[in-house]
Amino acid sequence: MADETIVETSHRKSPEPWQIANLFARYANFTWGGGSATVSVLHKEIIDRRDWLSESEFTLCFALARLIPGTNLLAFCTGIGWMARRGGGAVCALLGASVPSALLVLVCTMLFSFWEHDPIVQAAIRGAVACAVAVTVRTAWVIARPHVVQGSRTMIALVAVGSLVLYWGFDIPAIDILLSCAVVGALLPVARA
């Protein structure tokens, strides 16, 4: 079962730029719960439904985006676009993932004083945000699952628990923990085939 889920397909057909922009406009803008929810949705759309990238390419984008300053989600979308169709794909993905939600935020900012006390709007937001907690938990599982394979479960558990201990117990910033894990990963002995 080891790494069976990480499948490579080297001869994929590149999606058209409009398809990339369309996908990110639809799925990267209208999900509550921040980037985690969006990653979960995009995983399903890009790998399971459209087969644009392999699991390992998706993982590469996700991991590198976590190490880049700014909004990780936008770096992640840009990376996916680049992997799918190089420069044009990156631009389409970045615009598709950021313009619609930025416009929505702009309109909401303009109208904020009108709806900030509306009980219906507030109730809808409460419901959506409650569900976002569930989305965050599920996303943690979705991104970790391909790596939880026989032979490396102990190491995976150590890294996960170690990260939580450093974050909760010692208040170490997330980026420092991620960079430390990157260094540990690079220095680990390489398993022989």
């Binding site: 985690s36 390992s56 993982t59 590469l60 996700f62 991991a63 976590r66 190490l67 965050t136 938990v137 996303t139 943690a140 599982w141 991104i143 970790a144 790596h147 490396s152 995976i156 890294v159 996960a160 628990v161 170690g162 990260s163 939580l164 974050y167 909760w168 997330a174 923990i177 991620l178 894990c181 990157a182 540990v184 990963g185 690079a186 680990l188 390489v190």
Partner: peptide, 17 residues
């Protein structure tokens, strides 16, 4: 290995979030 460590750590930090 590097990617695996970063992704698993990210998952743990997401869970914490």
């Amino acid at each position: 290995n590097l990617l695996k460590m970063v992704v698993v750590s990210s998952a743990a930090l997401l869970f914490a979030a």
